[in-house]
Amino acid sequence: MVLAKSLSGPIGIEVTGVDLTRPPTTEEVATMNRLFVEHSVLVVRDQHFTPHQMLEAVRLFGEIFEQHNKRFALPDCPQIHYLSNQDHFQESGKRYIPGEGYHTDHSNDPSPPKATVLFAVELPDSGGDTQFVDMRAAYDDLPAATQRRLEGLQAFHVYQSRHSERKLMPLSPELKAKIPDAVRHPLVRTHPESGRKALYLNPIRIESIEGMEEQEALSLLEGLLAHSTQEKYQYRHKWKPGDLVMWDNRCLLHKANGDYDHTQRRYLYRVMLKGDQPF
Results as ranks from 00 to 15, higher is better:
S172Q: 03
P112W: 06
V158S: 02
H106D: 09
S107H: 01
E165Y: 12
T130M: 06
R149Q: 12
D129M: 09
T104S: 15
H157L: 04
Q154K: 08
D141L: 13
P110F: 04
A145G: 07
S164V: 01
P143Y: 10
R149V: 07
F156N: 14
A155E: 04
G152R: 00
A144L: 14
L150N: 00
Y159E: 00
R166M: 09
L153W: 07
S126N: 11
D129Y: 06
H103E: 08
V158L: 01
D134R: 10
D109R: 15
L153R: 04
L118H: 05
A120K: 04
A120F: 06
S126P: 05
R162V: 02
A155Y: 08
T104Y: 06
N108A: 09
S126W: 14
Q131K: 09
F156L: 14
Y139F: 15
V133H: 09
V121Q: 06
E165H: 13
A115M: 13
M135H: 04
D105F: 05
L123S: 12
P143S: 07
L123A: 13
M135F: 04
R166Q: 11
F119S: 02
H157C: 13
K167P: 01
G128D: 13
A138H: 06
L153D: 02
D134E: 10
Q154M: 15
F119C: 02
G101P: 00
T104K: 03
A137T: 12
L171C: 01
P124W: 00
S126F: 10
A155W: 12
A144V: 13
V121E: 04
D125K: 10
K114Y: 05
R149S: 05
Q131R: 12
M169W: 06
L168V: 05
R136N: 10
Q160E: 15
S164T: 04
D129S: 11
P113M: 03
E122G: 06
Q131H: 14
Q147E: 00
E122C: 01
Q154C: 01
P170Q: 14
D105Q: 04
P110M: 10
E151Y: 07
R149L: 12
F119W: 03
H157T: 09
T130I: 08
A145L: 09
L123M: 09
H157P: 12
V121H: 09
A138M: 11
R148D: 15
V158D: 01
D141Y: 12
A155Q: 04
N108P: 00
V117A: 15
M169V: 00
S126Y: 14
D141H: 13
R162C: 08
H103W: 03
D105E: 15
V121N: 05
A144M: 06
T116S: 15
S111W: 06
S164M: 01
N108M: 11
S172R: 02
D125I: 07
L123R: 08
T146I: 12
D134M: 02
H103C: 05
L153G: 00
E122L: 02
S107R: 00
E122A: 08
A145H: 07
G152H: 07
M135R: 02
R136P: 10
Y102I: 05
L168Q: 00
R148C: 14
G152Q: 09
